[in-house]
């Protein structure tokens, strides 16, 4: 068994207002693996992703990235983030900045301050960004502003931005919750296909159980901040789903 990309032990997080978001989470993901994370809103899925790449600092336990503690210092967490791409429910594209520059902002962790301030990108970086746009099939939109694109197109640009980091892991925080079912498939197809091609591990928080089963090699289900189920998609039975989502869970 190869070394885990991310490995958490006893991970817990209590927000300053006293909300307990995560408790005693042992989670891991191997290189190239696609893991679907499901659970009700507020179950701790988003908090988990933000603890992994250091956007949130856990209050208990540890997060290791390639065997090294992420939260040893804020500077180290920042270097970890360079190798971890992330996409969001609301896309997070920078308004009024062209699609190409949005993708190049994926390099923001690698460029120095002065080069960043004047938006000076090397030819290699530009080629990389254009290749990322090609892979999500949106190259022809490179000069447009985000608001001129549809939701699905915007999320593809966000995927290209994450790829431009040349990451080891892609974290997807409800990437298709704002999209219609057909567009959701197009977006997930792109993300999962590229991750498989490049051997990028992917953790996707999903609200749709069917998408989670379809795309994930493995499923992790959260309930009230704890891992309630972990296993293959086939092992996720209706009984388990009823435990996770409550009695009113109907097959959706």
């Amino acid at each position: 068994m190869s070394e885990a990309v991310f490995q958490t032990t006893g991970l817990g997080l209590t927000y300053p207002d006293g909300t307990r978001a995560l408790s005693d989470v042992d989670f891991h993901i191997k290189p190239g693996e696609v893991v679907s994370v499901i659970g009700r809103s507020g179950a701790g899925k988003s908090t988990l992703l933000r603890c992994l790449n250091g956007l949130l600092v856990p209050t208990d336990g540890s997060v290791k990235f390639r065997g090294k503690e992420v939260h040893s210092s804020p500077e180290h967490a920042r270097t970890v983030r360079r190798d971890v791409g992330m996409i969001f429910q609301s896309f997070g594209l920078v308004p009024r900045v062209s699609v190409l520059n949005n993708v190049l902002i994926g390099r923001a962790g690698q460029v120095g301050l002065w080069r960043g301030l004047i938006y000076h990108w090397t030819d290699a970086e530009k080629q990389l960004a254009l290749r990322c746009l090609t892979r999500v099939e949106i190259l022809d939109q490179w000069h447009k502003r985000p608001r001129e694109l549809s939701g699905g197109q915007q999320q593809r640009v966000a995927i290209a931005r994450a790829l431009c980091q040349q990451p080891a892991v892609l974290l997807a925080d409800e990437p298709v919750s704002a999209l219609d079912p057909a567009t959701a498939r197009v977006v997930l197809d792109h993300a999962v296909r590229i991750c498989r091609e490049d051997g990028i591990a992917m953790i996707a928080n999903l609200h749709s159980v069917s998408l989670a089963k379809e795309y994930g090699d493995r499923i992790v289900a959260f309930k009230a901040g704890r891992v309630h189920f972990e296993g293959l998609p086939a092992e996720l039975t209706d009984d388990v789903l009823r435990e996770i989502y409550g009695e009113h869970y109907a097959d959706f």
């Binding site: 790449n53 956007l55 920042r78 270097t79 970890v80 983030r81 360079r82 190798d83 971890v84 791409g85 992330m86 969001f88 609301s90 896309f91 997070g92 594209l93 920078v94 308004p95 902002i105 994926g106 390099r107 923001a108 962790g109 690698q110 460029v111 301050l113 960043g116 301030l117 966000a158 931005r161 980091q165 974290l171």
Partner: peptide, 15 residues
């Protein structure tokens, strides 16, 4: 949202 997305790339606070 865009601010968090840029932070997630590992950018420094200035950038």
């Amino acid at each position: 949202a865009p601010v968090e997305a840029v932070r997630a790339t590992g950018a420094s606070n200035n950038l």
